[in-house]
């Protein structure tokens, strides 16, 4: 009898080949990561040195042309990758630390505390991310790379907290949590063994999405002069500098734009692909 039952069980899932989405995402993000690491050791030119004429179009010597001071744009865009990835990773790390902690806390809290926390998340989310980040930057006096990371991290943490709270609440209502409690599990063990692993697939996808949003937000902050100050070559600042000459030297705006878009799209594709990999019940479907 047991043999009969056994035959009906599905075969153990094998690791499915990575989906196309995931591959393209990995390639785009990987490329930026490679370039970012490369700039730590080598760049084609000194990013602050005047190495050519002003506003030169792309050429073999200057792949993306030069800016209005004659500096190599490609070098600056490469360094921009490093800035963007640093800001994205830093902001998501801060948002994850604050957001997941508060979200789980709210899910476990008494009714009143939960209501207060949930309302706080909602109010913070009601502020546009960029506006919130600008407020934080303003509060930190001087614009620096760190203040931009902190600002975006705090702004995004509300989104992460709200998502975590909802996901954790859903998991806490599951039978296997009751089962674990009836068997004598403590709350910390339930959080680390059951809640976090079960919300992780969804959370990680969201982190990748927020990573992309943080990069765009950093570019916006820099564009407004609130991000990393010169000589940090943020893409947002490159775009802002190219604005005045966009009709005479369009490539100055197009090149950092392409860099920005490729990284953000890469992150979003990665997020999509991660969704399939993170959940074992979905692995077999592709």
């Amino acid at each position: 009898m047991t043999d009969l039952v056994d035959l009906q069980a599905p075969a153990p899932a094998r690791r499915t080949p990575r989906s196309l989405t995931l591959s393209v995402g990995l390639v785009l993000v990987g490329l930026h990561l490679f370039v970012a690491l490369l700039t730590l050791f080598w760049t084609p030119y000194d990013p602050t040195a005047m190495t050519g004429g002003r506003l030169e179009p792309p050429s073999w010597a200057h792949w993306a042309g030069t800016d209005r001071l004659g500096r190599d744009l490609f070098t600056q865009i490469m360094i921009g990758s490093r800035i963007a990835l640093t800001v994205g990773a830093g902001a998501v790390a801060i948002a994850a630390a604050i957001g997941v902690t508060l979200g789980v806390l709210a899910a476990f809290a008494t009714r009143t505390l939960d209501d207060v926390l949930a309302a706080t998340f909602d109010i913070l989310i009601a502020f546009p991310t960029l506006l919130l980040a600008m407020l934080v930057v303003a509060a930190t006096d001087t614009a620096s790379l760190f203040s931009a990371i902190l600002a975006l991290g705090i702004a995004i943490s509300a989104i992460v907290a709200r998502l975590t709270r909802i996901l954790a609440k859903r998991v806490l209502a599951m039978d296997y949590i009751t089962a674990a409690r009836t068997a004598g599990s403590s709350w910390p063990s339930i959080v680390f063994r059951h809640v976090l692993p079960n919300i992780w697939p969804t959370l990680s996808v969201n982190f990748a999405l927020q990573f992309g949003i943080a990069i765009i937000a950093e570019a916006s902050l820099s564009y407004l002069g609130l991000g990393a100050p010169p000589p940090n070559a943020s893409w947002g600042r490159l775009l802002q500098e190219a604005q005045g000459t966009v009709y005479t030297a369009p490539f100055g705006a197009v090149a950092p734009g392409i860099a920005l878009v490729s990284l953000v799209i890469g992150m979003n594709l990665l997020a999509d692909g991660l969704r399939d990999v993170g959940d074992p019940t979905r692995r077999r479907s592709r």
Partner: peptide, 17 residues
């Protein structure tokens, strides 16, 4: 002292463990 077995074994087991 007391341990439980529940009605629906699919939801009583952690799906990701």
């Amino acid at each position: 002292t007391a341990a439980f077995v529940f009605q629906e074994p699919l939801t009583a087991l952690d799906p990701l463990m």
